[in-house]
Amino acid sequence: MKVLVPVKRVVDYNIKPRVAADGSGVETQGVKMSMNPFDEIALEEALRLREKNQADEVIAVTIGPQVAQDVLRTAMAMGADRAILIRTDAEIEPRVVANLLKVIVERENPGIVSMGKQAIDDDMNATGQMLAAKLGWPQGTFASQVTVADSKVEVAREVDGGTEVLSLSLPAVITADLRLNEPRYATLPNIMKARKKPLETIEADSLGVDLTSHLKLVSVAEPPERTAGVIVETVEELVEKLKTEAKVI
């Protein structure tokens, strides 16, 4: 069984995003970019399936400009066997991402698509569900545990009321939540080895998918700032202020 792992290149999670002065978006020029952390978790899960002999090939795929191949090299340094760059300079919305990934899935025929539950830039939390819908596959979103057995996968999901466990027939789409696993680091020898692994480039506009967005970004603004309040010295003073000043207890 192949496992396909879509990964996204995003502003590194340690960087505080800055809204562009003209309100056109968030600054990405000259900012450190990395693989979306949820995608690292999804990749780690795919690698573990391969190590348990439940998968025989892990393929990373990304969509973006030439420079997005960085995250594919990282994926291969972590252990992915090969990678596919769907190259485009256009801004692609999650709906289009799902349409492009569908073409790749139909070409590669993986048993599992393992992907992050959301990207930490646009926080849409939608691509996995949309891809599953378009493929007619079952979905296991927000996964905290994945167990493959007998052409089925059992997925424990983090939901509002606790943990829900589903059984899905394969093929299926699984989206990774934070506590699914702790991704490994790429070691230097593996980074070197990854340079020799195959990376295929496909032009996005050669796949017969309409790349235009249905959702237009009108503007981006800073959220209203909260201002720091006062430091109180004692618990009694705190309770007094909560009662008389804030009137909240």
């Binding site: 809204v19 968030v26 930490i120 830039d121 237009k216 009108v218 800073e222 959220p223």
Partner: peptide, 13 residues
Amino acid sequence: IYAGNALATVQSS
């Protein structure tokens, strides 16, 4: 977006 560090205004067609 960006964990609430920015607010995006979007228009759907």
